[in-house]
Design a protein around this nucleic acid. Structure first.
Lengths: 269, 269
DNA sequence: GCCGTTGATACCTTCTCGGCATGGATCTCG
DNA sequence: CGAGATCCATGCCGAGAAGGTATCAACGGC
């Protein structure tokens, strides 16, 4: 049982390049070393992670799983080192994750005023796994849009985000002030993208180019507003809830204070 | 940035014992090695983690933080390995770990008959950490000899293994049919070996060469029986318990079925 | 003040990691 | 269809890290 962080890094590199030689180059080691290290992981885990021919490198199910796990672990280690340094310097630090479109500046400002000694930072939450940075420790608090995996988290609903239909500005429906889901029947709808590599920009690009219409949270539509796109409320679509989230076992003073200040800020507005 | 999982484990051990020597003993390494590894972590993180005098070992704030972080990371790694194995076993597969000398063939045969589609396999459990393969996911069920770390495990006692004294065949005590612990007073006893590289074969070799006598479970003595060794029951030595063990949170169908079949097999014999 | 305990240091051994050379399989192209 | 290019695997070697033994130095208890 000797799973090494170095080996995990190697594995991640190979997966991302789908190519031993190039991965080795990026890692500043030679290809044979990489081959042997990957094989070592496979032996330690006693399972095949990569199907490799001289022509292509493909992930097995176990490999796919390990790739995910490795990313999380490496991120967690990096965050941990950061926090150890913070603890050593006596500086206290709070990182807030936020789903695209949600505004955290007010709360952060209020918090910073109350705790001038605490360093604050924000990181974007990836929409396909909004809770990831909370779980791997890169952030302590999240302003997240539901749904996400809430197991092990303490969540405080803070608002509703109505869904709007986002379409090309020239679309016939854009002449209406508001829509119902019935109006969208027969329109080509863009689903939630499956691949996590696809960004929201990509999605709006598709919409603008006339590939279809998408239902998105209003706050997202607003942040990405552009002249060639229109968004109109869909009155009968269920709104998307947004909430504050923290790890359930992370109840230190700093985090509790932030939650309090954040909810107070909300009430004031 | 060369934070190693091994070093994290070392650090956790030192923190939990608040004592380098005892931690080293638990880790099956020597104390100087541990001292150096801890210092290496401190250099890599560029901060002091432990205040140590010859009399006490105390945590600094950074050390306290790293202790928390390390626990989380190690747990995360273990869980990750577990999930990779699960992903790999899309094909259904059950691996049974067994302490040396315990017989699992009957149960496996019965299980294989009932589940012809499930691949079965056995792996030996290393005596110094019989539960390791359960925890790291290489096995799902164990036939293990106590004692071992049962935290997080569900265990079902399945029998007693009386202790026998194992000695050279020519030893005076070998002329007796059974012994008591009083008979062993004054004999040189071979302790449980410290180094985890030492095998049972090695131990029996030592006994045969006249280095001493050892108390071992009867089933072990039987599996390793050889003409130049004799083993005699020690009537008043507490018997060693054997049990079935599974991870407490591993209650899937396959595992439950195996436990049922295994206990039924035991009752029949 | 002496002795036992405990962590640190010095020195040696062993094993893993990384590099280089090369083999063997597969795809491409003439 | 065969020659060449590409790319991962294997064998062997050197350097460095990890582990062991012996010993020192500091601190506490009596």
């Amino acid at each position: 049982m000797d799973l090494d962080l170095r080996k995990l890094r190697y594995f991640v590199a190979v997966v991302e390049h789908r190519h031993f030689g190039r991965a080795a180059e990026q890692l500043y080691i030679t290809q044979p070393v990489l081959s042997r290290q990957i094989r070592a992981i496979e032996q330690e885990l006693d399972c095949t992670l990569l199907e490799r021919t001289t022509r292509r490198v493909e992930l097995t199910p176990a490999g796919k799983q390990l790739y995910q796990e490795a990313q999380g672990i490496l991120a967690a280690v990096a965050a941990a080192v950061q926090r150890v340094h913070d603890a050593d310097r006596g500086t206290r630090r709070l990182v807030v994750a936020f789903s695209p479109g949600l505004h955290v500046a007010d709360a952060i400002r209020a918090f910073a005023q109350r705790h001038p000694d605490v360093e604050t930072d924000v990181v974007p939450a990836r929409w396909w796994e909004p809770d990831a940075s909370l779980r791997d420790g890169r952030s302590q608090v999240g302003y997240l849009r539901r749904p996400f995996d809430e197991s092990g988290l303490h969540t405080i609903p803070i608002g509703q985000d109505p869904r709007v239909a986002c379409m090309p500005a020239a679309h016939p429906l854009a002449r209406r002030d508001e829509l119902t889901s019935a109006d969208l029947d027969g329109e080509r709808m863009l689903d939630v993208p499956r691949r996590r590599t696809s960004s929201l920009e990509e999605k709006f690009e598709l919409i603008a180019s006339g590939q279809g219409i998408a239902l998105v949270p209003r706050s997202v539509a607003r942040s990405y507003s552009r002249p060639d796109l229109a968004h109109r409320p869909v009155t009968d679509a269920p709104a998307i809830e947004t909430c504050l989230a923290v790890l359930a076992d992370r109840r230190e003073r700093l985090v509790r204070d932030f939650l309090e200040i954040a909810t107070a800020t909300l009430r004031r507005t």
